[in-house]
């Protein structure tokens, strides 16, 4: 733990002496910065995608899961009796919080988008709808269907499962893809920083030989490289994620009908990712350079 803390302090405060041992290289520095920035930019979108699809899955799940509908189709003279019987069955079913028969007005409102507002619902043989609200525990749909079949032959129970499942599945997959992309981005960042660090170590082989000759330990030599690449990863990722967030911020805000794309923003706590991406990039840079340096130094005499 103490070693970790020392490492963190070292990365930010630095060892001015160790740092001077290796001449700065403009080109690889800029490349590392750019690569880290680009990867952070992509990471912002991958994370946004995962978060948005996660939210979407949750919303669809919640809205549809807690409610179901009972539809009663019966001849007009039996309608009232069957509705009353169905309500009775529903009231005695464990797991149902509330069951209300929809009034003609409510049914008219539901049909209005298709038939216009002046539809005489009362005169039409449309089925009676009963809205069911479940308790959090839910009810046994199969058991309820059997009871309804016996007592209310005209009733059809729709528990929304068949709508919910594919939607949730799609959202879940999308989320998985997002997480996979984040993982890939982290790996590619590590690979690029490793390559850049190895190139820097190879380019400075003569300096490393001189340092070894005068008694420098590997850890001392590695420090100079590790600090540089960690800071480059940090700065690059800070810039990249900032631009990424700016781009997301400039997208149109989510509407009531909450489409998928417009819901891509970050909400609430998830904005913490703005801080987390550069820190994760720095950790990736620290580990990648440290590993590369230790390996390369072993090969040099």
């Amino acid at each position: 733990m103490k070693a970790l803390l020392n490492n963190i302090i070292f990365v930010f405060v630095g060892d001015a002496q160790a740092d001077r041992m290796v001449p700065p290289t403009g080109f690889t520095a800029r490349l590392t910065l750019f690569a880290s920035a680009a990867m952070a930019f992509l990471a912002v979108f991958a994370i946004a995608l995962s978060l948005a699809s996660g939210r979407l899955a949750q919303r669809w799940g919640q809205e549809l899961a807690q409610s179901s509908t009972l539809r009663i189709s019966a001849p007009a003279e039996q309608m009232a009796a069957q509705t009353a019987a169905a309500l009775k069955v529903l009231e005695t079913t464990p797991g149902i919080a509330q069951a209300t028969a929809m009034s003609p007005d409510e049914q008219r409102a539901l049909l209005a988008p298709w038939f216009g507002p002046d539809l005489p619902v009362e005169d039409l043989p449309i089925p009676q709808l009963i809205a069911i609200e479940e308790t959090p525990e839910g009810y046994d749909a199969a058991g309820l269907r059997l009871r309804l079949q016996a007592e209310v032959p005209g009733a059809i129970l729709d528990d929304h499962t068949r709508w919910r499942k594919p939607l949730q599945q799609a959202a879940g997959r999308l989320r998985l893809l997002g997480l996979l992309s984040i993982g890939l981005i982290a790996l590619v960042t590590a690979a690029m920083i490793t390559l850049a660090a190895q190139a820097a170590l190879a380019a400075n082989a003569k300096i490393i030989a001189v340092l070894r000759l005068v008694g420098a330990q590997d850890s001392y030599i590695a420090k100079a490289f590790v600090r540089r690449f960690t800071l480059r990863a940090l700065y690059g990722a800070t810039a990249g994620s900032f631009v990424g967030f700016l781009a997301l911020f400039l997208l149109p805000a989510a509407q009531e009908q909450g489409g998928f794309l417009t819901g891509l923003g970050f909400q609430g706590l998830s904005a913490a990712w703005l801080l987390l991406i550069p820190i994760l990039a720095a950790i990736v840079g620290f580990i990648a350079t440290g590993t590369a340096a230790r390996r390369t130094l072993k090969e040099l005499r």
């Binding site: 070894r212 000759l213 005068v214 008694g215 420098a216 330990q217 590997d218 850890s219 130094l297 072993k298």
Partner: peptide, 9 residues
């Protein structure tokens, strides 16, 4: 390698 570094000193 560290022992070598110490010897070089």
């Amino acid at each position: 390698r560290d022992a070598h570094a110490m010897t070089r000193r």
